[in-house]
């Protein structure tokens, strides 16, 4: 029993020294948040209105939105959306975005959509929250990239 006690002290010292020696290296690792990239062709997979899930009742197959690499977007004709047609988009903060800002080509004003970009089942999910008509009605669109992109 005594032998274990004696041995344990040097072992602890070695362990502490080992951990301490890593400190500088850990500090040098860059932890900068990556910029969020929402480019791609997105399809709506779930749609809720005031918390009620309408996904199974609506034909979602044509509910698509494209965010292109050149900073433009295109909304499918069949998709009920806060804006229609095409325009330009940007994130309010490239690293920590809370919203997507849409500038419609034919519109007058920018439209700000609440935005989340979680990873669900290993894939990025784009969630957009908006009011289509009355502000008392809130819709959430959960989208996945088409063609299995992540």
């Amino acid at each position: 029993m005594k032998i274990y006690k004696i041995l344990s002290w040097p072992l602890m010292l070695v362990l502490c020294w080992g951990i301490n020696s890593c400190k500088d290296e850990l500090g040098n690792i860059r932890t900068e948040e990556a910029e969020k990239d929402i480019t791609g062709n997105w399809k709506v997979t779930q749609l809720t209105r005031n918390g009620e899930n309408l996904s199974k009742r609506l034909k979602l197959e044509n509910f698509k939105i494209d965010f292109n690499a050149d900073g433009t977007y295109t909304i499918a004709d069949d998709l009920p959306f806060v804006v229609s047609g095409s325009g330009k988009y940007r994130l309010d903060d490239p690293q920590y975005p809370f919203s997507v800002v849409l500038s419609p080509t034919e519109g007058k004003e920018e439209v700000v959509l609440k935005f989340q970009f979680p990873v669900v089942k290993g894939k990025r999910q784009l969630s957009l929250v908006m009011s289509l008509g009355c502000s008392s009605n809130t819709y959430q669109y959960d989208c996945e990239r088409l063609n299995g992109g992540i």
Partner: peptide, 8 residues
């Protein structure tokens, strides 16, 4: 109950 023509 309250909606506009762009609502679902």
């Amino acid at each position: 109950v309250k909606s506009l023509d762009n609502d679902i």
